[in-house]
Design a protein around this nucleic acid. Structure first.
Lengths: 220, 220
DNA sequence: ACCTGAACACCGTTCAAGT
DNA sequence: ACCTGAACACCGTTCAAGT
């Protein structure tokens, strides 16, 4: 998989790419048992390696988690860009497409997502690659909003600010476990369509009554 | 402070209310050093008690954190209700008032907030008091939305669903550190008004261009 | 009843030693 | 270079023992 040349400069005793194997093991453990059940000993054991082998590839337990988060930010950026491109080709609404892609990523990769935004990640500012990957993912949102403004679909206003509000909403849906069981609210949890498209429509159209509509329309 | 009667049925050797002292110590440590720096030994030491004294009041480290979260849910509910009442009296917008109150709580009580929604809290469904307190806080939002619909200010639609979107947005702002430094986006972090009122206006009015307005108006 | 110290099975991290 | 086992200073939790 590595395209650094024909020889294997990093060939380890037991693995071709121990670093990647360790990240995958961490993701697997987080998915199966939760973030705080993640143990360096457990990671090593899952890969078939001593507990301390990991220190040849990562400074810290924190560094391992940063690697998981970095992968997550790259994945979500890729998903957002793919969704945006697909929406443009099909002529569907870009905001709804981005919302679905973002929430879909969060629900589909909970280990990555919790690591990306969990409290175990304290060095988000100290790790330049992580910061850059986060910014790159966020920039897909900003760009989509700018394009919507240029096209006359979206009202004017600072695109970064707008993107922050949109991102906050989508993050909240993922973090609070929306689109499935909302823990503390619904007295009637019997299905109904998912929350994300509704959230997108609220962000686009707002909650107030329109003069030309009057109260009584039930949106989606 | 206890109003269970004149005698002190729970009078401990060192404290009148060790349980509360332990919760306060936990909050203090989380605020000062972060959630995963919280140690039962450290809590005991801060209160001036042995490491294991805590087990007379809480089953677990998890139970201590649940107590912190419970306090948080009660505090935020109180803040939301106060804001709603004040807004009604002053005739200002209830949604904006709730948004300010919620984000203000999150920014003002980060230890509580992170505990309420952090991964250390896994028994959110198992703890009935915690679940009820969360539902009670959420219900303030739902009620405000229903009242807005009755008054003809807000468009119709399932109040729970709408409240979930609003809550998600507000939670996202707090969790992503909005209203201050957004980590990954703003290339121009030079102040500007805070994010919360803008988010409230987006939720109310939406992002699309209105026919009667046209592009060009810059909201707040 | 409430508190304590010793003890148990863990954990992250370091380090001299192996190939 | 990469990996290993022993060791260190921690941690949550249990439990017999104190007052």
């Amino acid at each position: 998989m590595a395209d650094e040349g024909g020889d294997k400069p990093k060939a380890a005793y037991h693995h071709g790419d121990l670093s990647r194997a360790l990240v995958e093991a961490a993701v697997g453990i987080i998915a199966a048992e939760g973030v705080d059940a993640l143990t360096l000993r457990g990671v090593g054991q899952r890969v078939g390696v001593s507990r301390t082998a990991l220190y040849r590839h990562f400074d810290d337990k924190a560094a391992l988690l940063e690697a998981v988060a970095l992968e997550g930010f790259r994945l979500v950026r890729r998903d957002l860009e793919a969704a945006l491109e697909a929406a443009g080709g099909r002529g569907s609404d870009p905001m709804a497409a981005l919302a679905e892609a973002y929430v879909g990523f969060g629900m589909g990769h909970p280990s990555h997502y919790r690591t990306m935004f969990g409290p175990s990640l304290k060095n988000r500012e100290r790790n330049p690659a992580l910061k850059a990957a986060g910014r790159a993912a966020f920039h897909v949102l900003t760009r989509a909003i700018t394009e919507g403004q240029v096209a006359g679909r979206l009202a004017s206003g600072d695109p970064d600010r707008i993107a922050q509000v949109v991102w906050s909403t989508l993050h909240g849906i993922v973090a609070l476990g929306g689109d499935g069981q909302f823990g503390g609210g619904s007295p009637a949890p019997e299905a109904g369509p998912a929350l994300t498209p509704f959230a997108a429509s609220v962000l686009l159209s707002g909650l107030v009554v329109r003069p030309e509509e009057g109260p009584g329309q039930s949106r989606s």
